[in-house]
Each structure stands twice: as structure tokens, then as C-alpha cells.
Amino acid sequence: MEAKTGTWTEKKGLAQMLKGGVIMDVVNAEQAKIAEEAGACAVMALERVPADIRADGGVARMSDPDMILKIMDAVSIPVMAKCRIGHFVEAQILESIGVDYIDESEVLTPADEEHHILKHNFKVPFVCGCRNIGEALRRIGEGAAMMRTKGEAGTGDVVEAVRHARSVVGAIRQLKTMNDEELMAYAKNNGAPYELVKEVKELGRLPVVNFAAGGVATPADAALMMQLGVDGVFVGSGIFKSGDPAKRAQAIVKSVTHYQDASILAEVSKNLGEAMVGRNASQMPEGERLAGRGW
């Protein structure tokens, strides 16, 4: 047979290779090398980490392709990059420069308030954020080959990531116990494609890999998310906004591998220096929240 590229198995498969790993936000080649050296399984190339996007305000867009290419040259691990929700031309540009994964991300300012990108149209795989099972299955229906919780990016407050992970995991548990005749109503009530609802019931999990993101700042946060049932962790501002990025990055990598071993978690949590200055996500005004972007 002819070799086939860009298949669903290929797209989902790369995310499966990232499982049990940490994907770190980096803004230049130097940070990318620190992340790789610390054991990151991939990096997310972007011009500003979410904490700075929040502080700066204004419109946040796809990063300069030249900056992303420099990061791709600097490391041997996969490189992801973000495009705005619904901005399929930013996605075409990122695909053409050869990024390994695109994050259609609420951290950037949405380009379309009604439609997400039809991700099946691309050869490059996409990751998208979700707050609940319906949102996850809508994105997978559009072709997302990997999911992550939205959490509340750039806060260093894990509470929203916990809320979203518990919501998805709880819904899967509920679906597993349902009769087949209850599935259509469930699909309707959650705005989720029926075929995918059925698939989740059969698999007992999402049909794609599901990571935590949005507010993870410490090894304990990362292990908490793993114990709640995610497959791996994104850390955005939490590493390079902390006192000792290399040490914290290594500690979070170790905490994701040994997430069930409290004595190792205690060891890696020692003397990490200052964590990023947090912002309390629960008390944040609605307009400042990123998780409400997209549907």
C-alpha cells in the first residue's frame, strides 16, 4: 500500500506519545532548550505567556512564524503553536511552517465567536480546550485529536482546571452506567455529537488524549491533575514566571511520572524558590476570564 499521512491514527497517535509528560510554554529558543533539558515532552511556542497576555491587554494573535521556526530549530522534541479560535488562516500558516500540533486557544483573542476551525481539513493535528464533556466532544467532532482542560490560564490558580477535569471525568463515569436508550437525550442535553457520546460510553474514556491546562504552577498541582485522571499536563506561565524555571520544570516533570508516590512528590517539591505570583481565579471578574471564550 501507499504510505498515508495526516490520518486520524497519526493525529491522535502523536498525543498518545506525549502522555505522562509535561508540555511547557516557551517564548524563545533559550527557554525551549531549558524546557527540553528539564525533560519536557513538547513545547508550546508563543510570544507571550498567558500571564503577560493578561497584563498587557489588547489583541493577542498567532506568534511570529520566524520566532516559532527558531524554536523548532533549537529543540528535537515536538513544537506546538497557538492560533486564535476560528482563525483557520493562522492555522494554515502554522501548518505550512511544519509545527507538530496546533492549539486553537482561548488564550488568544477569538477571531470567530460562532465557529471553531474545522480541524478535519488539516493534516496537522489540533489540541483544543474544554470545560465539560459536551465542549470536548464538539471539538473532537470538528477534528481535535487531543483535548485539554481550559482551566484559567495565566493565574497560577489550579481551581478552574480541577473544576473542568472533574466535570469531564465525572461525565464519563456517568455515561458508563447509562442505558443505550438514554444516550440520545444525553447528547441533546450536552450539545454533544451522538456518535461520540456512544464511543465514550464504549471506551470508558474520551476517544483522544486529555491533558490538564490552565493554572498548574507546582509539582503538587500537576500530580493532583494526574490523580484526577488526566493523561498529562500543560504548564504555561507557571515555569518561566517562577524564581528558578529549570529546577521547577524538572520537578514538575518528575511529579507527573511519580504522581502516585507522595514521598517522591515531597522530595521534588523541596526548595523550588518562588512560585509564580498567583491570581485568585474564583474572584476574577467575568470579563477577565479566558475560559468563557469559545463554546
Binding site: 504510505a3 499521512t5 495526516g6 491514527t9 515536538p78 501548518e95 507538530d100
Partner: peptide
């Protein structure tokens, strides 16, 4: 040799 076929868009299935 690592990543011998290129980046993710070059990943493939074959018999």
C-alpha cells in the same frame, strides 16, 4: 537517527 522522516505532518502509516 531520530525524527528521520521529518516532522509530524510527515508521519505515516504503511504495510
Amino acid at each position: 537517527q531520530r525524527n528521520a522522516f521529518g516532522r509530524q505532518v510527515d508521519s505515516f502509516e504503511t504495510d
